[in-house]
Simulated scan of single mutants.
Amino acid sequence: MTTPPFAPPTDAELAVVSAQLGREARGVVGIAARCVCGNPTVVATVPRLPDGSPFPTFYYLTHPAATAAMSALEAGHAMPELAALLEDEDTAAAYRAAHAAYLADRAQFGDVPEVAGVSAGGMPARVKCLHALAGHALAAGPGVNPIGDEALRLSRWSPKRCECLEPGAAGAE
């Protein structure tokens, strides 16, 4: 078992995440990726929420501008283009490796039989949710999740440009 690359969230970080989500953050064990300004972008969440519900999405995208960008890609029908990338064996192999890495990261926080072998975003064989794939790509860093990396590249959002203070953005301080 490796140590996760994040510390437990502070109360202030949980307040920002809750504002970003528009509801109370649940089961957050760390901030897995941040905006350049320091605000949370992706949280790591326990695989079983405090109410007992299984929750397979370990890396959860919370940043409002990032989630909007992934929603715009999905609405613009980017999924078939991204799914077609899996026809390349190297990309498909990297995507399967991303799935395995995701499962290993989540396993550090518990074994939940209901979600055993299930990662997120359609991994390892299809493209289902760009929010989850982008969240994983941001948390793991470039080169780990090829579909998440490509979704981020196609989007109009960048983790290198703060949009937290944009008018109406949740989490603006």
Rank of each mutant, 00 (worst) to 15 (best):
V115N: 13
A104Y: 02
G76W: 05
A101P: 00
A107V: 00
A100G: 08
G110L: 11
L130P: 04
M70I: 09
R126E: 14
L85Q: 13
D111C: 04
A72T: 12
V112S: 02
A83I: 03
G117Y: 00
V127T: 07
L85K: 08
A65H: 04
T91L: 06
L86R: 03
A68W: 00
P80S: 02
Q108P: 00
T62C: 11
H77R: 13
M70L: 13
T91N: 01
R126V: 14
T67K: 12
A107S: 13
Y60V: 03
A104K: 05
D111I: 08
A94R: 15
M79W: 07
T67W: 06
A125D: 15
M123L: 11
R96C: 10
D105K: 02
A101F: 07
H131I: 04
P113T: 08
Y95A: 09
G117L: 00
M70C: 11
A69F: 06
A72C: 02
V118Q: 12
R106H: 05
A107Q: 10
M123E: 02
A93P: 01
H131P: 01
A104R: 11
A101G: 09
A93H: 07
S119I: 07
E81N: 10
E81M: 09
H99W: 11
A78D: 10
R126M: 10
A68H: 10
M123C: 03
A116D: 15
A93G: 08
A69H: 10
C129S: 11
D88F: 03
A125R: 14
A125C: 06
R126A: 11
T67I: 14
T91H: 01
L61N: 09
A69P: 06
H63F: 09
L85T: 05
A92V: 01
Q108G: 13
P124H: 04
A120E: 09
Y60T: 05
E89Y: 01
A72F: 02
Y102G: 02
A69Y: 06
S119M: 06
H131V: 02
A116M: 05
R96M: 08
A94L: 06
A83F: 00
A107E: 08
A100N: 05
A97N: 06
Y95H: 13
A78E: 15
A116N: 12
R96G: 07
A65S: 13
A72D: 12
A84W: 00
H77F: 09
V127S: 01
A107W: 03
A100P: 04
A120D: 03
P124N: 02
A92H: 12
G122S: 00
D105Q: 10
L103W: 00
A98S: 14
R106V: 03
S119T: 12
T67S: 06
P64R: 05
T91I: 15
E87D: 14
E81T: 14
Y95F: 15
Y59C: 14
A97M: 02
L61D: 07
S71M: 08
P113H: 05
P80F: 01
H63V: 07
P80W: 01
G110F: 06
E89I: 06
S71Y: 13
Y95E: 05
P64G: 12
A116E: 15
A78R: 13
A83Y: 03
L103E: 11
A100E: 15
A120H: 09
Y59Q: 05
G76S: 13
H99Y: 03
L73F: 06
A84S: 08
